[in-house]
Protein backbone atom coordinates (compact mmCIF):
# COMPACT_ATOMS: atom_id res chain seq x y z
CA UNK A 1 0.00 0.00 0.00
CA UNK A 2 1.39 3.34 -0.99
CA UNK A 3 1.60 5.92 1.75
CA UNK A 4 2.34 9.59 1.58
CA UNK A 5 5.47 10.95 3.15
CA UNK A 6 6.38 14.62 3.36
CA UNK A 7 10.02 15.49 3.81
CA UNK A 8 11.93 18.71 3.41
CA UNK A 9 15.19 17.52 1.99
CA UNK A 10 18.04 20.02 1.71
CA UNK A 11 15.51 22.81 1.82
CA UNK A 12 13.07 21.45 -0.74
CA UNK A 13 9.78 20.03 0.46
CA UNK A 14 8.82 16.83 -1.29
CA UNK A 15 5.77 14.64 -1.17
CA UNK A 16 6.83 11.07 -1.62
CA UNK A 17 4.50 8.25 -2.54
CA UNK A 18 6.18 5.60 -0.44
CA UNK A 19 5.72 2.12 -1.90
CA UNK A 20 6.81 0.21 1.18
CA UNK A 21 6.33 1.13 4.86
CA UNK A 22 9.39 -0.93 5.77
CA UNK A 23 11.70 1.49 4.00
CA UNK A 24 14.27 3.27 6.12
CA UNK A 25 15.04 6.90 5.55
CA UNK A 26 18.41 5.75 4.21
CA UNK A 27 16.86 3.52 1.58
CA UNK A 28 14.34 6.20 0.65
CA UNK A 29 17.15 8.69 0.13
CA UNK A 30 19.38 6.31 -1.77
CA UNK A 31 17.08 4.01 -3.71
CA UNK A 32 13.98 6.15 -4.24
CA UNK A 33 15.29 9.71 -4.41
CA UNK A 34 18.71 9.03 -5.94
CA UNK A 35 20.52 10.87 -3.13
CA UNK A 36 23.35 8.36 -2.97
CA UNK A 37 25.80 10.61 -1.16
CA UNK A 38 24.53 9.16 2.10
CA UNK A 39 26.19 5.75 2.45
CA UNK A 40 25.16 2.41 3.87
CA UNK A 41 27.96 0.78 5.81
CA UNK A 42 26.22 -1.53 8.24
CA UNK A 43 22.45 -0.85 8.18
CA UNK A 44 22.47 -1.35 11.95
CA UNK A 45 23.43 2.03 13.36
CA UNK A 46 26.93 0.83 14.17
CA UNK A 47 29.15 2.70 11.72
CA UNK A 48 27.71 6.16 11.15
CA UNK A 49 28.23 6.19 7.36
CA UNK A 50 24.56 7.13 6.89
CA UNK A 51 24.60 10.10 9.27
CA UNK A 52 22.22 12.86 8.20
CA UNK A 53 20.67 15.77 10.04
CA UNK A 54 17.03 15.31 10.96
CA UNK A 55 15.58 18.59 12.20
CA UNK A 56 19.14 19.67 12.88
CA UNK A 57 20.17 16.63 14.91
CA UNK A 58 22.59 14.05 13.61
CA UNK A 59 21.01 10.64 13.22
CA UNK A 60 21.75 7.33 11.54
CA UNK A 61 19.38 7.26 8.57
CA UNK A 62 19.54 3.46 8.56
CA UNK A 63 17.81 3.38 11.96
CA UNK A 64 15.18 5.94 10.98
CA UNK A 65 12.02 4.44 9.57
CA UNK A 66 11.10 6.92 6.87
CA UNK A 67 7.42 7.07 7.73
CA UNK A 68 8.12 7.90 11.34
CA UNK A 69 9.80 11.13 10.21
CA UNK A 70 6.89 12.49 8.21
CA UNK A 71 7.21 16.26 8.09
CA UNK A 72 10.87 16.34 9.11
CA UNK A 73 13.60 18.51 7.65
CA UNK A 74 16.48 16.36 6.45
CA UNK A 75 19.93 17.62 5.50
CA UNK A 76 22.23 15.29 3.58
CA UNK A 77 25.75 15.71 2.27
CA UNK A 78 24.27 16.96 -1.00
CA UNK A 79 22.78 19.91 0.85
CA UNK A 80 25.93 21.35 2.41
CA UNK A 81 27.83 23.09 -0.37
CA UNK A 82 26.44 26.23 -1.96
CA UNK A 83 27.04 25.60 -5.62
CA UNK A 84 30.79 25.21 -6.02
CA UNK A 85 31.44 26.76 -2.62
CA UNK A 86 32.19 24.01 -0.15
CA UNK A 87 30.87 24.13 3.39
CA UNK A 88 33.74 24.96 5.80
CA UNK A 89 33.66 21.39 7.14
CA UNK A 90 33.94 19.92 3.63
CA UNK A 91 36.77 22.29 2.85
CA UNK A 92 38.59 21.38 6.07
CA UNK A 93 38.26 17.65 5.40
CA UNK A 94 39.76 18.21 1.97
CA UNK A 95 42.70 20.25 3.24
CA UNK A 96 43.51 18.00 6.20
CA UNK A 97 43.13 14.78 4.21
CA UNK A 98 40.40 13.71 6.61
CA UNK A 99 39.51 10.72 4.48
CA UNK A 100 41.00 8.16 2.16
CA UNK A 101 38.51 5.91 0.40
CA UNK A 102 35.77 8.50 0.96
CA UNK A 103 33.02 6.05 1.84
CA UNK A 104 32.51 7.13 5.45
CA UNK A 105 33.19 10.76 4.55
CA UNK A 106 29.63 12.04 3.99
CA UNK A 107 28.66 10.63 7.38
CA UNK A 108 31.78 12.02 9.05
CA UNK A 109 31.11 15.46 7.60
CA UNK A 110 27.43 15.50 8.58
CA UNK A 111 28.39 14.34 12.05
CA UNK A 112 31.04 17.04 12.29
CA UNK A 113 28.60 19.75 11.21
CA UNK A 114 26.26 18.70 14.00
CA UNK A 115 29.07 18.30 16.53
CA UNK A 116 30.24 21.84 15.89
CA UNK A 117 26.68 23.08 16.37
CA UNK A 118 26.36 21.02 19.56
CA UNK A 119 29.54 22.32 21.13
CA UNK A 120 28.81 25.21 23.41
CA UNK A 121 32.27 26.10 24.61
CA UNK A 122 34.49 25.43 21.63
CA UNK A 123 36.14 22.16 20.90
CA UNK A 124 39.31 20.56 22.12
CA UNK A 125 40.88 17.53 20.44
CA UNK A 126 39.64 15.13 23.08
CA UNK A 127 36.06 16.28 22.72
CA UNK A 128 36.28 16.04 18.96
CA UNK A 129 37.60 12.50 19.17
CA UNK A 130 34.86 11.49 21.54
CA UNK A 131 32.14 13.30 19.63
CA UNK A 132 33.21 11.80 16.30
CA UNK A 133 33.52 8.24 17.60
CA UNK A 134 30.12 7.21 16.29
CA UNK A 135 31.54 7.45 12.80
CA UNK A 136 33.91 4.63 11.93
CA UNK A 137 36.67 5.15 9.39
CA UNK A 138 38.31 1.90 8.36
CA UNK A 139 41.03 3.70 6.43
CA UNK A 140 41.66 5.29 9.83
CA UNK A 141 41.94 8.91 8.75
CA UNK A 142 41.20 9.89 12.33
CA UNK A 143 44.13 12.28 12.73
CA UNK A 144 43.02 14.23 9.68
CA UNK A 145 39.38 14.12 10.74
CA UNK A 146 40.18 15.57 14.15
CA UNK A 147 42.36 18.28 12.63
CA UNK A 148 39.65 19.09 10.09
CA UNK A 149 36.90 19.40 12.69
CA UNK A 150 39.01 21.67 14.88
CA UNK A 151 39.97 23.78 11.89
CA UNK A 152 36.38 24.07 10.65
CA UNK A 153 35.25 25.03 14.14
CA UNK A 154 37.69 27.94 14.14
CA UNK A 155 36.62 28.98 10.64
CA UNK A 156 32.94 28.85 11.47
CA UNK A 157 33.42 30.68 14.77
CA UNK A 158 35.20 33.47 12.88
CA UNK A 159 32.43 33.56 10.30
CA UNK A 160 29.83 33.77 13.03
CA UNK A 161 31.69 36.64 14.69
CA UNK A 162 32.07 38.53 11.43
Amino acid sequence: MTQTLNLTINGTTQTIALDDPRATLLDVLRERLGLTGTKKGCDRGQCGACTVLIDGRRMNACLALALSHDGAAVTTIEGLAEGDRLHPVQDAFLRHDGFQCGYCTPGQIMSAVALIAEAEAGLDPERVREGMSGNLCRCAAYAGITEAVLDATRTMTREDAA
Binding site: R30, E31, K39, K40, I77, L80, L86, Q90, G102, T105
Partner: peptide, 16 residues
Protein backbone atom coordinates in the same frame (compact mmCIF):
# COMPACT_ATOMS: atom_id res chain seq x y z
CA UNK B 1 38.62 15.01 -2.94
CA UNK B 2 35.80 17.37 -3.90
CA UNK B 3 33.78 14.43 -5.23
CA UNK B 4 34.29 12.62 -1.95
CA UNK B 5 33.45 15.48 0.40
CA UNK B 6 30.30 16.36 -1.55
CA UNK B 7 28.98 12.80 -1.78
CA UNK B 8 29.28 12.77 -5.55
CA UNK B 9 31.99 10.11 -5.86
CA UNK B 10 30.25 7.14 -7.48
CA UNK B 11 30.55 3.80 -5.70
CA UNK B 12 29.13 0.61 -7.17
CA UNK B 13 26.04 0.49 -4.97
CA UNK B 14 25.18 4.06 -5.98
CA UNK B 15 24.39 2.92 -9.52
CA UNK B 16 20.70 2.88 -10.42
Amino acid sequence: GVLKVTGRAPYAADRQ
